[in-house]
Simulated assay, not measured.
Amino acid sequence: MKGYVSIPNSIYTKPCKYCGARPIIALTSHIDYVVRCPNSDTHYKTQPGLIDVEDWNIHNTLLYERDKISNRY
């Protein structure tokens, strides 16, 4: 057994804001799951419990791009 489940493409998920990977569902204990990045444990993961794709999407939204906009006039 792999220890994780790939999220089907029919479910909308935002990619990881650090590496661009599609999230996975991982089992943390006998009954708790997390949605996390498959590439790194240091990237964002949801709290253990129910599968919370909405929380993943909220935390992986880029609100603005830093350092690309010059404030020179």
Rank of each mutant, 00 (worst) to 15 (best):
53 V>N: 00
47 Q>R: 14
42 T>Y: 12
41 D>S: 15
54 E>C: 08
33 Y>V: 09
4 Y>F: 15
25 I>L: 06
52 D>L: 05
63 L>K: 08
60 N>V: 07
43 H>Y: 06
43 H>M: 03
7 I>T: 03
58 I>M: 12
2 K>C: 09
48 P>N: 06
9 N>S: 14
23 P>M: 04
7 I>Y: 00
61 T>W: 08
21 A>Y: 05
6 S>N: 15
31 I>P: 01
36 R>I: 02
68 K>Q: 15
30 H>E: 11
14 K>G: 02
51 I>K: 05
57 N>E: 08
13 T>P: 03
56 W>P: 02
23 P>H: 06
45 K>F: 06
42 T>V: 09
5 V>P: 00
63 L>M: 13
28 T>W: 03
66 R>N: 07
61 T>S: 11
22 R>T: 11
27 L>M: 10
65 E>G: 05
50 L>W: 10
44 Y>W: 07
11 I>H: 13
18 Y>L: 09
8 P>L: 08
60 N>T: 02
61 T>R: 02
7 I>N: 01
57 N>V: 04
16 C>T: 00
53 V>S: 03
44 Y>R: 03
15 P>L: 04
40 S>E: 06
29 S>Q: 07
20 G>I: 01
68 K>V: 12
24 I>S: 01
2 K>A: 12
39 N>T: 10
2 K>Y: 13
15 P>R: 13
64 Y>C: 09
3 G>H: 06
41 D>H: 10
29 S>V: 09
61 T>C: 06
57 N>S: 07
64 Y>N: 04
18 Y>D: 11
20 G>Q: 05
60 N>F: 05
16 C>R: 00
37 C>Q: 05
9 N>R: 10
32 D>M: 11
63 L>R: 14
31 I>Y: 09
72 R>F: 15
61 T>Q: 07
67 D>E: 15
52 D>E: 11
63 L>E: 14
48 P>F: 02
37 C>K: 01
16 C>F: 01
45 K>R: 15
40 S>W: 00
16 C>P: 00
26 A>W: 04
56 W>Q: 02
21 A>E: 10
36 R>H: 05
70 S>G: 12
58 I>D: 14
28 T>M: 11
70 S>Y: 03
35 V>T: 02
13 T>Q: 04
55 D>T: 12
61 T>G: 01
6 S>L: 15
1 M>C: 10
57 N>G: 02
54 E>L: 14
51 I>Q: 01
51 I>T: 06
15 P>H: 04
23 P>A: 07
52 D>A: 10
65 E>A: 15
19 C>K: 04
17 K>H: 12
45 K>Y: 05
33 Y>P: 04
17 K>N: 13
